[in-house]
């Protein structure tokens, strides 16, 4: 990939974006109202993620029962057909996937007011139908939308986005082609604050560039938060109007 010009001297990236531009972001909620309490379908660039939230509800087993708070479980299913090249094996028990599950669970345990739902379980099920770089960020956004749709109380939104570092320039929301060429960081940002609830660095990033990378990442996450907020508000308004017309 060394021949690939990730960032042209004119300041354009492979897909024509500038360094601080997000990819297309499209979301809908309540997409699976029959089979889950909350659900979302998210397209962030070419990432396509379906999230189903079941609960808060009676736990399936006593082992899941916590008298103080709800037990949160996250399961991630990266489908075999999600990448351009089909993978032969199921990703279900891969270490990478298990790690993602754990970090997502920890992030959302902090983001939700779980103490309001003692002795219950909340199960989050993610299906990655297509991935194209920064899929962890898309998963965070998908879960946030589905949890809010399920009516689970949250301190604030968590918005996820990845940032790459090409030479001296941070690149917002990298696709998979860019990911192969630059080091990336994935951030989970709480609401409109500068608090990070998740940060995953999978390659080396010079410490003195970190500040720049975080700054654009946080700005990008705030933008995503606004987009999610708009979707939720629009959905809420439609629902309320719909009910008002019929009550």
């Amino acid at each position: 990939m060394s021949r690939l010009e990730v960032y042209s001297p004119e300041g354009l990236r492979l897909d024509g974006r500038r360094w601080n531009e997000l990819r297309r972001f499209q979301a809908s909620i309540s997409t699976h109202a029959h089979s889950a309490d909350g659900s979302s379908y998210l397209e962030q660039g070419n990432n396509k993620v379906v999230t189903l939230v079941r609960g808060p509800g009676e736990p399936a087993s006593r082992g899941q029962l916590d008298g103080q708070r709800a037990t949160l479980r996250v399961s991630v299913n990266v489908t075999k057909f999600s990448k351009f090249e089909r993978s032969r094996t199921s990703h279900r028990n891969e270490r990478r996937v298990l790690e993602i599950q754990t970090s997502l669970r920890r992030t959302f345990e902090k983001a939700c007011l779980l103490h309001l739902y003692p002795r219950t379980a909340i199960d989050v099920e993610l299906h990655v139908l297509e991935q194209d770089g920064g899929v962890l960020g898309a998963m965070i956004n998908g879960i946030t939308l589905a949890l809010v749709d399920a009516g689970v109380a949250m301190w604030d939104y968590v918005a996820g986005v990845s940032v790459g570092l090409h030479d001296q320039t941070p690149l917002l929301d990298c696709n998979s082609l860019e990911e192969t060429a630059v080091s990336t960081v994935t951030l989970g940002v709480v609401g409109k604050t500068e608090k990070l609830s998740l940060m995953v660095v999978e390659d080396k990033i010079p410490l003195d560039r970190m500040e720049n990378v975080l700054a654009i990442g946080i700005a990008g996450a705030h933008r995503i938060r606004d987009l999610m907020d708009q979707e939720l508000r629009k959905h809420a308004k439609n629902r309320i109007d719909n009910l008002a017309g019929k009550q």
Binding site: S28, H34, Q230, R239
Partner: peptide, 14 residues
């Protein structure tokens, strides 16, 4: 598409 909603309220966000 939003199959739950009666009048499919899918919105193109950006």
């Amino acid at each position: 598409e939003n199959d739950a909603a009666f009048n499919g309220d899918r919105i193109d966000l950006s």
